[in-house]
Write a protein that binds this DNA or RNA. Structure first.
Lengths: 188, 188, 188, 188
DNA sequence: GATGAATGAGACTTCATTCAT
DNA sequence: AATGAATGAAGTCTCATTCAT
């Protein structure tokens, strides 16, 4: 009764978009899962595409906030990397679908400028981190535009695999994965 | 006349599926791009989903063949890694869309068992490679099911970024990326 | 506060029905323009169609009253015609939308019996006037059922054209139009 | 079999638009009456509004052609008027719905520029006729923009009334109506 | 074998109407 | 009494698939 229908719709859409993709998810499906009438969705979102972008922006916002929150700006590069890695894992564990959803819907055909800009803020954050690390001679001297997908791609695919249940998510696993990712981008 | 209509259809579908995704690609679009009638597609493929799976299997086949071909089974782990990495890059350069298409359509909702099995053969190949490397104390001791997405995710995202034009694909770049990926999975 | 909500709704509906037509006018549109809640409309009118008919009947009532009011029952046919013509013009000037609305919604699909009956009273009034004129040998000997649409059609179309701004509504214009209409139906 | 589906659709739409109006006519209704699938309509017309405009333009074309055809350009004004009047009646008799449809859908909300332009050609034709008559001192000296709606309105309403079955369409009737209309616009 | 016109199921979306507040 | 959020029936339109040519 006191539940927020807008939230219900976003939550239902998140699950369905993540599981089936935007195009294969119908508005009635979302309405059913959110337990609202189909027309209600249009009281909160102009259309399906706007719903996607609202959802995307909220997810990216929460994702990026999680990463920025408590970032050790004056710590070592290694400490900063540790923070980023564990906050990503933390977010992916707590908001399993949101994390998958973001990566699987990074599509200029679906996202408006605002959405793309918001995701790029995260990329910029990563770029700054990498460049500072390179200036200190700690991060490997490759274009950050290459290092970012290497690191981000590895983490996303790993967490996606974990989400699928292929591997068990233990602390040891993530410690090992962090090691791998750090080795991927640091100077040897 | 001597051109193979089946091939034309598969080629057109490959480009469209890669660029727009399966659901956002219509059969008439494929027919147009393949310069055949819409009905003709149904003489070669039972339906759109079967077409996708045929395409997927042919792409995975070519991808996997590229990697297996000339694999230095009796070389060092490092040499084997080099082979795998450069064959993936080679394939991605030569068959840009096929490589993107495979990763972006790894979806159990769309793929039949046969298709999934075929992709898993590649995963199994990678697993065997990693386990042998671990037995020799060269590859980092993490579950291969974790190492594979780390390596594969990094490569896919990097090549996808290159395909989008964000970074220029030079030999130096790929040499650097190989270094990163190798460092990610090797023992230190 | 002291304003009558029922009147506000009718007034808003009149403007919208006239400008857009019944089918293209939505209940929320009416509610917005009337500055009431959508649900409020249903406290005053059973449904949209009933609202239309109430509005129609009130408009026809006011229209017919304007014409009957001060009708020179014992004047000459020409004087009576003058009265009718100028009262129609007077009404159309004072209640621009009401006049347009009546003619544009003379549709048996939308109007109930009561509404049609009410409009027919005006037609009957015109018929009586014409027949009496014919009996005096002043009005042209054509079926009143033909003379009425000729006269009414001419006036309605003329006033509609004026409403659209194509011609400027001056006293000279209306004097000329009266002349035309009178010539149309009188004996020569 | 050999029937033209495009024609069937236009014919069905004409009947329904005339009887119910554009907004109250659904695409499935048109499809049913045309005995085609609903989707077929969209093979011939981009959307419902385009269908309306195509239909409108074809109707106006036929209407205007009927009037222009055999117009006695070098005859007397009275002869020209006779021609126009009888060709309108002729058209309205032969294409009952087309004639009603044109007048009832003269709505800038529905018609595109092309459609409006096409109808204005008819208006321009009438204007030229009236001005020439005025120059010869035969047509009443009122703005043609006022005379046109008077004449056109009278004829449309009369024919609409006849179409509704209120009056019987005899040659005598139309002779009388022509007399009325001519008297309405001529000099006395 | 090849075609593309035709189809109708099902998608997105609107809106008249209801009802809890 | 008044509201406006909520609903779902029904509208417009798309597209995978069929089939007569």
């Amino acid at each position: 009764m006191a539940t927020n229908k807008r939230e219900d719709i976003l939550q239902a859409a998140l699950l369905l978009f993540t599981e089936r993709g935007f195009d294969a998810t119908t508005v009635p499906m979302i309405a059913n899962n959110a337990k609202v009438g189909a027309g209600t969705i249009y009281r909160y979102f102009e259309n399906k595409e706007v719903l996607l972008n609202c959802l995307f922006q909220e997810c990216v916002q929460r994702f990026f906030n999680t990463i920025r929150q408590g970032f050790p700006g004056s710590g070592t590069v290694r400490q900063q990397f540790h923070h980023i890695f564990y906050q990503i894992v933390h977010f992916a564990k707590r908001e399993r679908e949101a994390f998958s959803f973001i990566d699987s819907h990074l599509n200029p055909r679906l996202l408006n400028e605002e959405s793309q800009k918001m995701f790029n803020e995260f990329i910029d954050f990563m770029r700054v981190f990498l460049i500072k690390g390179q200036e200190q001679g700690i991060i490997y001297s490759l274009s950050p535009d290459a290092l970012i997908p290497i690191f981000y791609g590895a983490v996303v695919k790993l967490l996606e695999t974990a989400r699928a249940g292929v591997i068990v998510e233990t602390d040891e696993l993530f410690a090992g994965v962090e090691e791998c990712c750090w080795n991927a981008i640091r100077v040897h």
